[in-house]
């Protein structure tokens, strides 16, 4: 085994009552890959991430990260940016406290000088240097995304799990974010799994694309996974005016 496996799913099924959310998912992701996960709403994308986090136990199948069963993976190896900020806006907190919680894995009371410095640096990396002393309740959607990203990065994870991290970010912010993620991956060899609805971003930034709709419809390099055939099977139809913009085979058409 030349390249380490970051993620290995074998025959993973997840059911919510009678409803299957994931069926027979087999997936192997080599360490250092940048995987974009695409699929329609309700396809089980977030569910897949939660399975990797240990938040949802599969009804069947086996999950391994870095060759280990989940309970033997140190939590600090995984950085997570959740999809819907189920953020309780009434919770009194400063942005810097949320970032430090990523380091401490507890809610911080008094911040240590080292934690404060690390949090400021993480916020600066996501272009959120002005945010540290702001109340979470007062942040805009895009600012909140940055703070959550800083929270995930501060522990320097080997695996980054991002659930639609670009939601709410402006165009420049989005470009910055991809640059940042690519730089982090180059620097640390970390594996990134990012859910997105932006096929274009998936095409340009990911090394692999996973097309998911309850089952794995396609998985491979962007130009092989993002084919009309795969997208049609995942989404039911392909809006051609959308795909033309980025589709590899039609790029020069």
């Amino acid at each position: 085994m030349a390249v380490e496996e970051a993620i290995r799913l074998e025959d993973v099924h997840v059911r919510f009552g009678p409803y299957p959310a994931l069926e027979a998912v087999n997936l192997t992701v080599p360490a250092g890959a940048f995987v974009a996960v695409i699929g329609p709403n309700g396809a089980g994308k977030s569910t897949l991430l939660k399975v990797l986090l240990g938040l949802i136990r599969p009804t069947r199948g086996r999950v391994r990260l870095f060759g280990r069963p989940l309970e033997r993976v140190p939590p600090s190896w995984i950085g997570y940016v959740p999809q819907f900020k189920t953020l309780d806006r009434s919770f009194p907190a400063l942005a810097i406290e949320l970032v430090v919680s990523g380091l401490r894995r507890r809610w911080p009371g008094r911040l240590l000088p080292g934690e404060r410095a690390a949090a400021r640096e993480a916020l600066a990396r996501v272009r959120g240097e002005g945010l540290s002393e702001k109340s979470l309740a007062r942040l805009s959607g895009g600012e909140l995304q940055r703070v959550y990203l800083a929270r995930a990065l501060i522990r320097r994870p080997r695996l980054l799990l991002l659930d639609e991290p670009a939601t709410g970010m402006d165009v420049l912010g989005e470009a910055d974010m991809y640059r940042l993620l690519e730089a982090y991956r180059d620097e640390t060899g970390a594996t990134i799994l990012m859910i997105t609805h932006d096929w274009e971003a998936a095409y340009h930034h990911a090394t692999r694309v996973l097309v998911l709709n309850r089952r794995v419809i396609g998985f491979g390099p962007p130009e092989r996974a993002l084919t009309d055939e795969c997208l049609r099977r995942a989404f039911g139809h392909v809006g051609h005016e959308h795909t033309l913009a980025f589709h590899p085979e039609r790029r020069d058409a």
Partner: peptide, 20 residues
């Protein structure tokens, strides 16, 4: 346990993902 309880109060899933 204050830090643990506060963390889970803020977001249960984040606390669970960190195996609290």
């Amino acid at each position: 346990l204050w830090g643990r309880w506060a963390y889970a109060t803020f977001d249960r899933d984040l606390a669970r993902a960190d195996r609290l």
